[in-house]
Amino acid sequence: MKVKSKRIKSAVIAILCVFALSIIFAMPSAILAQEEEAETETDVPEEISFDIPYPEVKAKFGESFNFKVDVSYKGDEPLTFDVNWEAPEGWYVRIKPSYQETEISAVKLDPGQEESWEISAAPQVKVEPGDYPIKIIASNEDIGLEATAEITAVITASYDMDLATKTGRLNTEVTSGKDNKYTLVVNNTGTDSIENISLSTQEPEGWLVNFDNDDIETIESGDKKEIVATIKPPEKTVAGDYVLTLNASSENAQDSLELRVTVLTPTIWGWVGIGIIVIVIVGVAIIFARLGRR
């Protein structure tokens, strides 16, 4: 048994050695063969070109615009190209090979090589909605080769609204049966003015909630408006915490706010309650004192 396995082992090792040696000797000849092939190719005119599947990208202000660019180069020998961009003022454009984080300013391309880039553009300052053309230029000044790609970032208007309370607190205390004023703030955080904002509420049954201005005509972008809400819980509201949902909505934007409303016992009834308790206790105590022995 032992003798037999030894023999198999040595056989396997021998075969592996032969195999390895054959690879070592065969490699150089393969590489050489390739080189020979390239040299033998005829002159091809150098050409670099961009292919942009989606040359126009829409986004809101504040977001970045991402483009995909495929670069292909045809020629005899590898060439290095400078990569530049031109964009309206205030914009910054980053060019990166796909799936990499490095921003590039030059690229070396082999003949026939195709590469894909990711271009992201973002305005660094506040800009109006509109079309912003961006040019991507790859050039080699030595042989005067240049390719230009035109892409357009279209900034669309954004409609954003923020409903908040003036104090920033999301709870308030109210008295039942009374008008309780509470100031809300509608903030236009979008890039365009918002029109026809209507306010509505989801209130507990029987509650009355009114706004001094429940139909706001317009709020300019970045502007805000204060609204006074009048909250009136019905006379017979059990004291405690209630949730009041306030909605501001327009055609383009909407926001809502959950307000925790604590209904307080009207002080008068609180005192009457305590009064009754005291009267009962004192009354029973007096009865005991008057009627009990010792």
Partner: peptide, 8 residues
């Protein structure tokens, strides 16, 4: 009395 005080 307690009710009046608590539920208002």
């Amino acid at each position: 009395g307690i009710g009046l005080r608590s539920i208002g």
